[in-house]
């Protein structure tokens, strides 16, 4: 065949570039699900940092902390009625958590179906502890968040009760005689740290991080952010426990 022969109109030559690919299935692709997890996870991480920064206000003073809590309700006023900002944020967070859990569940079900017969001999996954515990770690975090809201937001499980000042709930909640609560908080916050150590890096990768050098950088960023976040969160209960606050 001569070199200048026009491209033969075979199925591939005619079709592949011109015709849009027909969608064979309505299932979201595994990369779409990962993108949903990355974006919703990133929003949740941003919230975690804002929340942790607010917590630290208790070191300025308990009244300052209470003023901060009140300011959250006044944010956006007079454009928004009192308390609306907080409710908009809560709805946004619930949507983010919902999407994150939905995508994780669909991917987990697919992963289980992808290996119906287990290996008889299977050494521990060589990846990090954080990578191995993402799914169960996530479940633990959800349970913790439910307890956390009932403890410090509604005050249901808090000795100071729901009508008290936010700072009073913090001081009563992490009082030394309630050491088991502080222990549970510590474990939960550390599991958030592990979740984020793999999660933040994984989000970078899902969003397209693709060089070996960048991989190390993204892993380092994930580790630093996780450690900083855990330290910020643990500083408050331990300050109450040791009497630094309260």
């Amino acid at each position: 065949m001569a070199v200048d022969t026009p491209i033969p109109k075979t199925a591939n030559a005619a079709g592949a570039t011109a015709r849009p690919t027909p969608r064979k299935s309505v299932r979201p692709s595994s990369v779409i699900l990962k993108l949903v997890m990355a974006v919703s996870g990133a929003l949740l991480v941003l919230f975690l940092f804002a929340h942790a920064a607010g917590n630290l206000k208790i070191f300025v003073g308990e009244t300052d902390f209470d003023h901060y809590a009140e300011w959250l309700r006044e944010l956006g006023t007079p454009l928004l009625p009192h308390g609306w900002f907080l409710w908009i944020q809560r709805i946004g967070l619930l949507a983010g958590i919902g999407l994150h859990i939905w995508a994780a569940t669909v991917l987990t079900i697919r992963a289980k179906k992808a290996r119906p017969v287990k290996y008889a001999h299977r050494p521990k996954i060589q990846g990090s502890y954080a990578a191995r515990t993402m799914r169960w770690g996530g479940v633990i975090i959800v349970l913790f968040v439910i307890y956390h809201i009932l403890d410090l937001t509604t005050g249901t499980f808090n000795p100071a009760g729901g009508d008290s000042d936010p700072s009073a709930r913090v001081v009563a909640g992490f009082a030394p005689e309630r050491w088991y609560v502080t222990l549970f908080y510590t474990l939960a916050v550390v599991s958030v740290g592990f979740h984020l150590r793999h999660g933040i890096w994984s989000a970078f990768r899902t969003l397209g991080q693709q060089t070996t050098k960048g991989e190390r950088r993204a892993q380092a960023v994930a580790l630093v952010l996780s450690v900083v976040l855990v330290a910020m969160y643990l500083s408050v209960p331990f300050a109450v426990l040791t009497g630094l606050v309260g």
Binding site: K34, A114, S202, G208
Partner: peptide, 29 residues
């Protein structure tokens, strides 16, 4: 019927040709 990637990195560890995990980032992008 293959599962999705969770960036665990097991694949690249056993790959006889050492295909780097970073290529999955390229696919995602």
């Amino acid at each position: 019927g293959f599962g999705g990637c969770t960036n665990a990195g097991e694949c690249t560890t056993v790959c006889p040709k050492g295909i780097p995990l970073s290529l999955i980032g390229r696919l995602n992008s």
